[in-house]
């Protein structure tokens, strides 16, 4: 068995581009899934019954499906439903966003619910409206509790972007496996792929830990 690690260096441009797509997908997904998650959480808590039920159904559905299946399903169904010819990248982004929005909605809902009832009562006793109490008292506190969980979701999302490789989106996993197929350098490319994910993911995981320690709320 002869190993040729040079192959990794030779294809560094492609690997870098793939990494860039991975990062882009992560950022774009969160950019969509955070505000959407807030909306869904608000709908679940405060909207009228049919809307609440629909929002809950959405959250429960996407929390109980494998993401890889959602990716495939989106690839075949979305073009038909929307009538648009979506690129694999857009499809992958849509699948990721649908999935992470559901998790974020649950995170935000739990965060909002974790604020003590007494806080709401104190706000109302001052004469605040529900909206004012939300804005000035509940949300600022909920944000603190939600941040560590969002950080953890981000770390998971970064790994999950690898799943859109199955619909040929040129993120890191796809690119690495393409190079493997072209060069037959299986061990080198797969190890390099793991190493790059490790190099990027490890610091992010540690950062999430730090956020967890810094913002942990003890009641």
């Amino acid at each position: 068995m002869t190993l040729d690690w040079n192959v990794v260096w030779q294809h560094r441009g492609q690997l870098a581009a793939g990494t860039g797509t991975t990062v882009l997908l992560t950022i774009a997904t969160m950019a969509i899934a955070v505000p959407c998650g807030m909306v869904v959480a608000a709908l679940r808590l405060y909207a009228w019954a049919p809307v609440r039920a629909a929002a809950t159904a959405y959250v429960e559905l996407f929390r109980n499906l494998p993401l890889i299946l959602v990716v495939f399903w989106a690839f075949y169904v979305l073009p038909i439903w929307t009538g648009l010819g979506l690129s694999p990248l857009a499809t992958g982004l849509a699948a990721l966003a649908l999935n992470v929005t559901a998790y974020n909605a649950e995170t935000f809902r739990a965060g909002l619910n974790s604020i003590r009832r007494g806080q709401v009562e104190a706000a109302m006793a001052l004469g605040m409206s529900r909206a004012q109490a939300l804005r000035r008292v509940i949300i600022p506190q909920a944000l603190r509790r939600v941040l560590p969980v969002l950080a953890s979701t981000w770390v998971s999302l970064f790994k999950d972007t690898s799943l859109v490789s199955v619909i040929a989106v040129s993120e890191l996993a796809y690119v690495a496996m393409q190079v493997r197929a072209q060069t037959f350098r299986v061990l080198e490319m797969l190890t390099a792929m793991a190493a790059i994910y490790w190099l990027l993911g490890y610091p992010q995981a540690k950062l999430a830990d730090w956020i967890q320690r810094r913002y942990a709320v003890s009641e």
Binding site: E121, A122, Q141, R144
Partner: peptide
């Protein structure tokens, strides 16, 4: 004006 047993100051 209402004062609560658990104070309920806004911690933030």
């Amino acid at each position: 004006g209402m004062v609560f047993q658990s104070f309920e100051l806004f911690p933030h």
